[in-house]
Amino acid sequence: NNDALSPAIRRLLAEHNLDASAIKGTGVGGRLTREDVEKHLAKA
């Protein structure tokens, strides 16, 4: 659900052409954090 993404996370996802649903969020309520996105990028 993109409504739960902060603007910074949306921008980071867009810059790397990532789909938020492909990344498991570890923030409050399962929200994506910058660390989640960076860890996903490091794996790729």
Rank of each mutant, 00 (worst) to 15 (best):
Asn1Leu: 14
Asn2Ile: 15
Asp3Val: 10
Ala4Asp: 15
Ala4Arg: 13
Ala4Lys: 12
Leu5Trp: 05
Leu5Arg: 03
Ser6Arg: 05
Ser6Lys: 04
Ser6His: 10
Pro7Met: 10
Pro7Ile: 11
Ile9Pro: 00
Ile9Glu: 03
Ile9Phe: 04
Ile9Leu: 13
Arg10Glu: 15
Leu12Trp: 07
Leu12Gln: 05
Leu13Met: 05
Leu13Cys: 04
Ala14Trp: 12
Ala14Glu: 14
Glu15Asn: 08
Glu15Trp: 13
Glu15Ala: 14
His16Leu: 09
His16Gly: 04
Asn17His: 11
Asn17Tyr: 06
Leu18Trp: 03
Leu18Pro: 00
Leu18His: 02
Leu18Asn: 01
Leu18Asp: 01
Asp19Val: 11
Ala20Glu: 08
Ala20Phe: 06
Ala20Trp: 07
Ser21Trp: 09
Ser21Gly: 11
Ser21Arg: 10
Ser21Met: 09
Ala22Asp: 14
Ile23Thr: 01
Lys24Val: 13
Lys24Ile: 12
Lys24Thr: 13
Lys24Glu: 10
Lys24His: 10
Lys24Phe: 08
Gly25Tyr: 02
Gly25Asp: 01
Thr26Lys: 03
Thr26Glu: 02
Gly27Pro: 01
Gly27Trp: 02
Val28Arg: 11
Val28Ile: 14
Val28Leu: 13
Gly29Trp: 04
Gly29Ala: 07
Gly29Glu: 07
Gly29Met: 06
Arg31Thr: 13
Arg31Gly: 07
Leu32Met: 05
Leu32Ser: 00
Thr33Met: 05
Thr33Asn: 03
Thr33Glu: 04
Thr33Leu: 07
Arg34Glu: 10
Asp36Ala: 01
Asp36Gln: 01
Asp36Ile: 01
Val37Ala: 04
Val37Lys: 00
Val37His: 00
Val37Thr: 01
Val37Pro: 00
Glu38Phe: 14
Glu38Leu: 15
Glu38Asn: 07
Glu38Ala: 08
Leu41Ile: 15
Leu41Asp: 02
Leu41Ser: 02
Leu41Asn: 01
Ala42Leu: 13
Ala42Trp: 08
Lys43Met: 14
Lys43Trp: 12
Lys43Ile: 13
Lys43Pro: 06
Ala44His: 13
Ala44Met: 15
Ala44Thr: 13
Ala44Trp: 14
